[in-house]
């Protein structure tokens, strides 16, 4: 009934160890040799809106470079890039982006496209702000009436924009009505819909979001709701592992005529989600 340690056991163990090691390192190493790729740290709004799914195949078909997008909040995406874990960062907080470059983490920041933020809220509109254009006044009213507000609370570009509006409104949002979720854009819209709260969203995510329930746009069109996206090559001087050539090729394509046209092409339900505005545009 008992068997002792046999050569067969040892062989099986050795084979299993070998396989496990290969599984851990093999495929990624093989891929790197086969096909050039870059890692882009970007935002949940661009991913959830479906823009990348539309853009990337065109770029890859043209250059043979695969683009791997890690979708995070703008704050986390910039941190990922600072640590050298991405080659390109594509986010929407101009101030933080310029700082990133000034600190030497990035080579150069370029405008790519814009859309705008909208304020979504329940149809019942407990704060009575529907149809307004002034985002700061609307948010002041929400705070004044303690109407439920769902905040991203994740240091993303949208979260930072929201915090700017509260500051301009002279409100320190606090209390039962103000709910910091620490979640991505889509997750926050899900939650806001479930608890009939107001929330700030980028229009791209809003248009492609399918679980709106009672939510609708209550405030839009304020120039302050402008939402600019920028792209930066991570500084290869800081992190030698950065694939500067391939990363720059992606940036050059994004701001080229073709890339800009591809961005303008992307529509959900007939509506354009992002508007190209790169400086070179040629």
């Amino acid at each position: 009934m008992f068997r002792t340690l046999t050569r067969r056991h040892l062989l099986a163990l050795a084979a299993a160890t070998g396989f496990a090691t290969a599984a851990l390192t093999g495929p990624s190493a093989a891929l790197a040799a086969d096909k050039p790729f870059i890692t882009v740290a970007s935002t949940t709004s661009t991913e959830a809106s479906g823009l990348f799914k539309h853009l990337l195949p065109a770029f890859t078909a043209r250059t043979g470079i695969e683009v791997r997008v890690v979708a995070q909040g703008t704050g986390q995406a910039l941190q990922t890039a600072k640590d050298g874990n991405a080659d390109v960062v594509f986010v929407h907080d101009k101030k933080a982006e310029l700082e990133f470059v000034a600190q030497g983490f990035g080579v150069k920041r370029q405008d790519v496209m814009y859309n705008d933020f909208i304020l979504a809220g329940p149809k019942a509109d407990p704060a009575g702000i529907k149809g307004g254009k002034d985002i700061v006044a609307a948010m002041k009213t929400i705070a004044g009436k303690s109407a439920p507000f769902a905040s991203r609370g994740d240091d993303s570009g949208t979260d930072r924009a929201e915090k700017r509006f509260w500051k301009e409104a002279g409100v320190a949002p606090k209390g039962d009505w103000y709910r910091e979720l620490g979640a991505g854009m889509g997750q926050t819209l899900n939650t806001a819909a479930a608890m009939d709260a107001y929330t700030l969203s980028d229009r791209g995510t809003w248009l492609s979001f399918t679980n709106r329930q009672n939510l609708e746009i209550v405030v839009q069109g304020d120039p302050r709701l402008f939402n600019q996206y920028g792209v930066i090559l991570v500084n290869p001087g800081r992190h030698p592992t950065v694939k500067a050539k391939e990363g720059q090729a992606f940036i050059d394509w994004l701001v080229s005529k073709d890339g800009q046209a591809a961005i303008a092409d992307y529509k959900v339900g007939g509506e354009q989600l992002f508007f190209p505005n790169a400086a070179s545009g040629s």
Partner: peptide, 24 residues
């Protein structure tokens, strides 16, 4: 993994992503 489409997207991270898109 970073939930990268076609590279590190698994069943569970795809579920998280579709939930965040509202595709319940």
């Amino acid at each position: 993994g970073g939930n990268i489409a076609g590279h590190t997207r698994t069943m569970t991270t795809a579920i998280a992503l579709e939930t965040s898109k509202g595709n319940l």
